[in-house]
Simulated assay, not measured.
Amino acid sequence: MNRRILSAALLASATVLASNASYAQLNLKQLGLGGGDNSSGNAATGAASAGGVSQLLQNYVGANQQVLAGQSGLASAMGLPGAAGQAQQAAGLLSGGTPSVSQLTQVGSTQQSLSQTLTQAFASRSGSASSGPLDKAAFSSGLESLGKGVSQYSSLQSSLGSVGQMNPASLLQSGVNPQNAQAASYIAQSAPGQLQSLVSTLTQAVQFASSHGISVPSIATSALKGF
């Protein structure tokens, strides 16, 4: 009897392990990070993994470039040249190939600071009769860029969950180079919070535009759907 119980336990354990292995492989496939049949060779798996993460980084950089362009435009429209310059400098960090984690951190910090500056500017203008400079055309253009950036951020969410379950070591094992692995892990951890902050900024910018007779591009409102 004891032998039968032991055999059943061993069989159950083997089944669980096999199931977990299949689940991990499925996550890799969903992300485009390889997986698949070992008979296809480690080189093919590594290439697929590197390609999947490379695409994620490219999309993330593109989203941030749009966001920074939008923040720069809004800041210029509100008569804040210093803030507009900060956005342009941050965008420059994303123009030289794959950015490092340090550069991505700096970009994220600048975005957060700009969001706070713009929020304060919206509140100040709405709460007073100040006749400071307000370029409505530039504001509308900034809204369009920010809306595109938020929309692109949203499209990243489907793959961020899978990346977040993989630490840099796992990404390295799947063939991703060290810099890209670190950047991908940073993005998985930071992007959701960044998106929420940007949605808040875009919401306030749309409200400000609506109350000041500024044209609101359709992409700015459609980007907010679902939030």
Rank of each mutant, 00 (worst) to 15 (best):
N167Y: 12
S72T: 06
N180K: 02
S19G: 07
Q30W: 07
L156F: 09
G36V: 02
P133L: 13
A188T: 13
L10F: 13
L198Q: 15
T105Y: 08
S113I: 04
S126V: 08
Q89I: 14
Y153W: 08
V101D: 06
A169H: 05
A188L: 06
V53D: 00
S126N: 14
G36S: 13
N167P: 10
T221A: 06
S174T: 04
V53L: 04
Q111H: 01
L146W: 03
S54I: 06
V206D: 02
S19K: 10
F122G: 01
A43P: 14
S126F: 11
Q165N: 08
A87M: 15
Q112M: 09
S115N: 14
T203A: 02
L31R: 05
A123C: 03
V199M: 05
S170R: 02
G193M: 10
V150N: 11
Y186V: 03
G108Q: 03
V61T: 13
Q66N: 11
Q58V: 13
F122T: 08
Q86R: 09
A129Q: 06
L68S: 08
V61P: 15
S210K: 03
T119Q: 03
T201I: 07
Q88E: 04
S215Q: 04
A90S: 08
V61E: 08
L93V: 05
V150S: 07
Q116A: 09
S22G: 13
L224S: 05
A8N: 07
P178W: 13
G62H: 02
K136R: 11
N177D: 12
G175P: 09
P192W: 06
Q103R: 01
A9Q: 15
Q204F: 00
Q66P: 04
